[in-house]
Nucleic acid binder design. Structure first.
Lengths: 341, 341
DNA sequence: CCGTGGTGTGTTAGCGGTAACGGTGGCCCG
DNA sequence: CGGGCCACCGTTACCGCTAACACACCACGG
């Protein structure tokens, strides 16, 4: 029992015994049996994770983070895919969870905003945590980054390089993060005294395909932009492809930046300047938030942490540079500041 | 107890009681508590999964499969990444597992062939299962597809389309699957009465970058190939990129096919004709094989299944077509047979 | 008629932890 | 100086399941 108290950081253990126990643990190479623990404690053992077809890179990072947290907590992750866009498909996939008695559900994007899913969970009384929503509703469990600030910083980066005409490719309109990123872009432009009307904005849907179409439109304009800021890496990669097909060099003729820092960003050439989301950490946070809520529900009370905003990071790589005909050597020299990877 | 027997398919239960129990289970919406189960059965609870930087798409699929199997078996997956190529880094990462007392380890490629890892596990007496080796050593636990047959079939597809000069980009030479795929390519060519010397072969390393270099070399030849068979999708995607930069249309001017069917294959444009590996199923098989081995070790005896070869599948998409100047309408018409996705 | 050997089912004793409660001492207070 | 309170640690009784065994029952052969 005392060992249990030490391991779980329980109160009322003398310092001397505590170190003695820890020493013994070390010597015996003891590690607690998670099965026994969760059996005895009657804790949540099944946590659902409903995923839709996000980028594979996103999903793998997310799973890594969620798995690490799940193992620490001794609970199992139950995966369920929900590829469908239709409300009934989403509801059906969610019901799957309800029937297999998962005790809480994690919703990575884009499902974090899927109304049918949330309605179904609400009805079943199963708590959930949304991940990476741009603008989560109040009093909901959620983990995210500051999309507004991130998009704003990225725009500032392009402005600092000397770009004045920037093309922006928006994300899927039914995800609030799209709107937040756009808001960040607009704010940075206006902050620099530029009229948003002088910028080129096209609608995209976070897919590679939509990125192709949007980029074609941007480059077909009479006064094409010297830089393109796509709302995610897939669309940025598409933009690079289109640029190449048109014989434009990136970044000499056209700068292209993305968002998310998925593996696609470093797979293509040139590697993308982008914003990194700490995906694995977000997944861990999400699971912990959910477990805390479940504990609280079970009567333990405890802190009422509901929202967690993690830090993003600007990742400067080779796809962004000064606009053509800019001051110094027109090419690879400038803006090699910050973190290059 | 009788319930336990029914649930676990135990022997010596009368048929009438069996259905009665099942009915009760259904009515009560009962589901066994996996924590209690693994506690009582004293089964393996921690299975390691040592991954290196495979394509993110591969990893996510793999994790999905492994997780599903792990949950069914009631065991936890312990992830550990091992990005390093150096022997000591790999040994170190492996020792991490030994110290945290995982009971078995799953090795997806390319770590399935990493000698330091295997040596370390051997020394610690921890069983492991290799996934997707091309030519696994005898008496080792492994799950794979028939790389030889798959590569051979893909080559045949190109030959059937009319290609006579095919460029082949080999995979990383320290993975046996590279050699097997190459062997399959050679066999199909020779089988068609073509001299392998008339084909163009370049060395690649399964990376996008290496694919660019290899493709440049192939296309710089005096007599460039009309089709390129890359040993994985990343290199095929690179080939598509190079082709586009050179103003070549895929597949009208150049057919390009890959291997693996990772998400990259459908992300880029045109979508890649490739060979699908049932990644999730392979992960499931791997875990089950490992658990069977552990049970057997624990004295239960049982079947001695050691190797499992799963089916691959040819996926025909838009990146392959007849060579330029071929018989019918030079382009999209031919070879729309088989499964198009 | 009684062993003997199945076949089906119930009993017992854990698996390795933790909640809840029961003891100890020591300290302070009345 | 006795009682109350607290800090500290040990006991007990489970958590939900399964291995191992005990038991009833039947068929069969000698």
């Amino acid at each position: 029992m005392t060992v249990s108290r030490v391991v779980n950081g329980g109160a009322n253990v003398r310092e001397t015994t505590r170190v003695a126990v820890l020493a013994a643990i070390e010597k015996l190479n003891y590690s607690p049996n998670s099965a026994a623990r969760s059996l005895a404690a009657g804790e949540a053992t099944q946590i659902g994770l409903l995923y839709s077809n996000p980028s594979a890179a996103y999903l793998s990072q997310f799973l890594i983070g969620a798995l690490a947290a799940a193992r620490k907590a001794g609970c199992h992750l139950v995966l369920e895919s929900c590829e469908g866009e239709r409300a009934d498909e989403q509801a059906e996939a969610t019901r799957q969870f309800v029937s297999t008695s998962v005790e809480g559900v994690i919703l990575p994007p884009p499902l974090s905003e899927a109304a049918p899913v949330r309605a179904e969970l609400e009805a079943a009384g199963i708590p959930w945590v949304s991940v990476a929503m741009g603008l989560p509703p109040a009093r909901s469990l959620n983990v995210r980054i500051d999309d507004f600030a991130a998009a704003s910083a990225m725009t500032q980066h392009l402005l600092d390089l000397g770009h004045r005409k920037i093309g922006f490719i928006r994300g899927n309109p039914n995800q609030t993060s799209s709107a937040e990123r756009y808001r960040g872009f607009v704010a940075a432009c206006e902050n620099a005294g530029l009229d948003i009307k002088s910028m080129a904005v096209e609608q995209g849907y976070f897919t590679f395909r939509s990125g192709i179409v949007a980029t074609e439109r941007l480059l077909d304009r009479d006064d094409p932009p010297t830089a393109i800021f796509a709302s995610n890496d897939d669309m940025a990669a598409a933009a690079v492809g289109v640029a190449h097909r048109r014989g434009l060099h990136v970044p000499q003729d056209l700068s292209i930046v993305g968002f998310d820092d998925t593996s696609l960003a470093t797979t293509i050439w040139p590697e993308l300047t982008t914003v990194r989301q700490p995906i694995a950490a977000m997944a861990e946070s999400a699971l912990n938030l959910l477990l805390a809520r479940l504990r609280e529900r079970r009567g333990a009370g405890g802190g009422k942490l509901e929202e967690q905003v993690l830090d993003h990071e600007m990742i400067l790589r080779e796809s962004s540079g000064p606009p053509p005909g800019a001051a110094p050597a027109p090419g690879k020299t400038a803006a090699k500041a910050a973190k290059r990877r």
